[in-house]
Amino acid sequence: MDVLTENFSTYGEGFLGTVELTVYASILALVLGFVMASFRVAPVGSFRVFGTVWVTVLRNTPLTLLFFAVLLGLPRFGLVLPFKVFAVLALGCYTSAFICEALRSGINTVPKGQGEAARSLGMTFSQTLSQVILPQAFRSVIPPVGSNIIALAKNSAIAGAFSVTELLGTYRTLNELGYSIIWTFVWIAVGYLIITLTISALFNFLEKRWGVAR
């Protein structure tokens, strides 16, 4: 118990770091995932190819490798940003590939006739997607998108290895101070639980509010 009360500010900083990474990377992942899912169902071939390559590359690359590529690679091309921004980029892009596929599976649950009806009325591709397909797909993708955001929150721990302040990384400081490793980790775990359970609760609420009525 002492380890928490005596190092509350260390834990707090780490906790807020993880929350920050999660929130920003989630927003990036949702936006990019949305764009990529649109690309993957677009009538234009080159868009589909781009979306497919994006998903294939990011989904099949270990996240740690992606962190290395972003944090060490981008500065070589003259792009120097704070590590935290790089971490958000890496996490957001990585998760966007999974979000994209969750959205796409949702799009596929909407009967084909819905899109055909919209197109036959003269609606453009983007109108069809935004007015007819996505509002219906949205209801069935709430659970898998929730899972992906939770995974993102936990994956943010990797950023700690690249000297970004986040929750898991606090163990190093505390360990050096000689605290029991078990209790250090118990409190870290509690921190993660607070974040992931909050995300779960949020998505449960969304599902109750918008989910498919059966």
Partner: peptide, 19 residues
Amino acid sequence: AKLRAEVGMVFQSFNLFAH
């Protein structure tokens, strides 16, 4: 899209927007 607006279509399975 513009041309389709001039052509009404009615489907076997109705395809009304469910939402």
